[in-house]
């Protein structure tokens, strides 16, 4: 009895060791490239530091909460936060609704649905820089969009150069380029719903609309929650579109200045890495809080089976 127990513990220990060995590459890379920098960035956010300083990160001067307090007083940061919030509020709902509609279309029995699935997904795998350059071509003053609008007698706009239009233009671009990703996830969610539920609903006399409202939507809730969280995090971290379109300066008149673009500029252009880290952690706190709120609203696990 006791020897058997011993063998069992030995096997268990070995399994543990083997397990750790297998995950070791990932654990180490996470520690070195993710957790480590995260801790350092957190420490830096309480210091005054730039990469050009001759002293090390550890010797840099502590400034307490100054970086955080300065951020709250900084008008450009506030503007960046406002822009990012507007961007997020605009992009997330539209993007998810379009993604859901597209998913419903490619989940139905229409002809050539494989083609549509691929076509809708292609923008997602295209590099955002390439997408931005392409959209700059479309949104140019003598670009495709203005030529198209001209057919209806609408005068040309300088889309990315106009204070009011620049941010919405980027929003349109972001929706177009990422809607495919959320469509795929919705599609997976849709196909996860057992057919028997629809059959039952049909027998109960539910029409298509009622089936969608009372079967599809409730069962899509976890998928919806996942998409909402991912999309919100993604939009709050928007950087490349704004960077390419404004040439890195967030112009015109800070109309396309986003939080991440601003922290990049403060860190590498104004040599204030500590301040940039503080901005990053404020952004983290905002995203974290929003995710918790969403979890409260949408996140309870529901089982129908």
């Amino acid at each position: 009895m006791s020897s058997k127990r011993g063998t069992l513990t030995r096997i268990k220990t070995r399994e543990k060791i083997d397990g750790w060995l297998f995950v070791l590459p990932f654990v180490i890379s996470t520690l070195v490239f993710f957790a480590g920098p995260l801790v350092v960035a957190f420490i830096l956010s309480f210091k005054e530091y730039s990469f050009l300083d001759q002293n090390t990160i550890w010797q840099a001067k502590w400034v307490g909460f100054d970086n955080y307090l300065n951020a709250l007083k900084d008008p450009v940061f506030k503007k960046a936060l406002l822009n990012t919030t507007l961007y997020s509020l605009g992009v997330v709902p539209i993007q998810l609704i379009i993604a859901l509609i597209l998913a419903l279309i490619v989940d139905s029995d229409i002809k050539g649905k494989t083609f549509f699935r691929v076509a809708y997904y292609i923008p997602t795998v295209t590099s955002t820089v390439a997408v931005s350059v392409m959209f700059m071509f479309i949104f140019k003053t003598d670009g495709l969009l203005n030529k198209f609008l001209k057919l209806f007698g609408i005068p040309p706009y300088n889309w990315f150069g106009d204070v009011r239009l620049a941010l919405p233009s980027i929003m349109g671009m972001a929706i177009w380029s990422s809607v495919g990703l959320y469509m795929i996830i919705f599609l997976a969610g849709l196909q996860d719903i057992p057919h028997s539920l629809y059959e039952a609903a049909w027998i109960d006399g539910a029409n298509k609309w009622q089936q969608f409202w009372y079967v599809t939507l409730p069962l899509l809730r976890p998928t919806f929650f996942f998409n909402l969280v991912v999309s919100l995090i993604g939009t709050f971290q928007v950087f490349d579109q704004a960077y390419v379109v404004s040439g890195g300066n967030g112009g015109p008149l800070n109309a396309t200045m986003t939080v991440v673009l601003y922290l990049y500029r403060t860190g590498f252009r104004d040599f204030k890495m500590g301040y940039a880290c503080a901005i990053a952690f404020i952004l983290f706190a905002i995203i974290f809080a929003l995710t918790l709120v969403q979890k409260k609203l949408f996140g309870e696990e529901t089982q129908y089976q």
């Binding site: 083997d18 060995l21 297998f22 070791l24 590459p25 180490i28 890379s29």
Partner: peptide, 16 residues
């Protein structure tokens, strides 16, 4: 087998 497993794990880790 264990040797191979360990070696592989180490190899992947160091190659990082």
């Amino acid at each position: 087998k264990r040797f191979v497993a360990t070696a592989t794990a180490l190899l992947i880790t160091t190659s990082l």
